[in-house]
Design a binder for these strands. Structure first.
Lengths: 129, 129
DNA sequence: AATCCTATGTGTAAATTACATATATCTGGT
DNA sequence: ACCAGATATATGTAATTTACACATAGGATT
């Protein structure tokens, strides 16, 4: 059983149920709303209801990788007070990738629909016993 | 971008989009339909539309672990012709876990709904530019 | 001057997933 | 009789992903 399982065994495989590699589409969708720096994204993803808590290290590394692959581009912003911020924005390539992610995630949702439907009907049968 | 990406770079993070740890609930749901051995489950999961190709090694290991944790129980079946089969069936504990998985997966689906809705509306705005 | 919030990053352990391989039984064809 | 192929279970480990810990630095507040 996932996430909220409290059996603190090291062999417990009570994790999962969330979407793998979701940090990328989440970043892209956030940037689709407008430019943001890593810290902004971190805060935004924390607020995202139902979404997994983002990991700082992975977020910044993913952003650098996404820049290399052309999904986002960044510029240093020093005008504000406080430490310099690397502000990211989504590129046309990023939009393409977001489109592809949306397709894949649509398929995932359909699979979940089927699974949950199957579950519900089998559960009804089981209850009758 | 996920799954179907063909950029054969080793650093390409074009994977993901599927549900993490899904092999467990998939096994439980299959066993909820009736008893089955590992090979049966393998075939069933292959047929499952939209579901990821199951991995032989992980399937058998997961089954053994699930038996240890009480979700399933098994008996050797030697009556049939061919190699002996270890036939699994779901236990009441397994049903409880399946219920928990269904809850978690329901939340994942809601998150996907929100994501895809956000995507669709932002995409519409982007197109207009 | 100490502490907190903002901000970006690196290092690496732990967990998961993917791939390769080993073993054994039976069936059907040549 | 022998070989290929389907059935069936399992182990070993490489590759990848995720999680956790830590380092650094500017500026504001107390």
């Amino acid at each position: 059983m996932p996430a909220e399982c409290d059996c603190s065994q090291s062999e417990c495989r009570c994790r999962g149920g969330d979407v793998r590699g979701a940090i990328q589409p989440r970043i892209l969708l956030e940037l689709a709303r407008g430019p943001a720096c890593g810290y902004d994204l971190l805060e935004a993803l924390k607020r995202d209801p139902g979404g997994a808590e983002p990991d700082t290290g992975n977020l910044y590394r993913t952003l650098r990788w996404m820049e290399q692959s052309g999904c986002v581009k960044s510029d240093w912003e020093t005008s504000r007070s406080g430490p310099a911020r690397r502000v990211y924005e989504i590129t046309p390539t990023g939009w393409e990738h977001l489109d592809e992610w949306a397709e894949v995630l649509g398929r995932t949702r359909r699979w979940l629909d089927d699974f949950l439907e199957g579950y519900t009907s089998l559960r009804r049968i089981y209850e009758r016993i």
